[in-house]
């Protein structure tokens, strides 16, 4: 059985949600903010349970251990410029983007 520790419940505020949306490059309408806030508070409240677990163990970034050496760093055939740009808006061999200045 895992050991439990006490913790305080943190709730996401509207201000934090708007900041998270901006960081995520998403524009939320006021209605969306209202709906997501209720949903995210419920979900994050549920996630709080993990804070009660004592886990003095290493993190598992992947579920299996990898014992192989990384592949050699050798150049190989790659996409042509034309191919690489085929799914983009491009001009003169470059991806086109909004004006930055």
């Amino acid at each position: 059985m895992v050991e439990r520790i006490a913790s305080e419940v943190e709730m996401i505020s509207e201000q934090t949600l708007r900041q998270v949306a901006a960081n995520s490059r998403l524009v939320l309408s006021d209605e969306e903010v209202k709906a997501f806030l209720v949903q995210l508070q419920e979900i994050l409240g549920f996630f709080e349970s993990i804070k009660n677990v004592r886990a003095d163990v290493p993190a598992s970034f992947i579920p299996v251990s990898l014992s192989r050496e990384p592949a050699d760093d050798v150049a190989r055939e790659c996409l042509s410029q034309q191919e690489a740009l085929s799914n983009t808006q491009s001009k003169n061999g470059y991806i086109k983007g909004p004006k930055s200045i």
């Binding site: 943190e10 996401i12 934090t16 949600l17 998270v20 949306a21 960081n23 995520s24 998403l26 997501f36 995210l40 979900i43 994050l44 996630f47 993990i50 804070k51 677990v53 886990a55 163990v57 290493p58 993190a59 598992s60 970034f61 579920p63």
Partner: peptide, 23 residues
């Protein structure tokens, strides 16, 4: 939104890293 929140400074250790340890 949830994933970005869980990885934000101040929350990352409590959520994301803790989840990886419980894994």
């Amino acid at each position: 939104l949830l994933g970005t929140f869980a990885r934000m400074a101040g929350y990352r250790d409590a959520y994301y890293l803790k989840a990886l340890k419980i894994r």
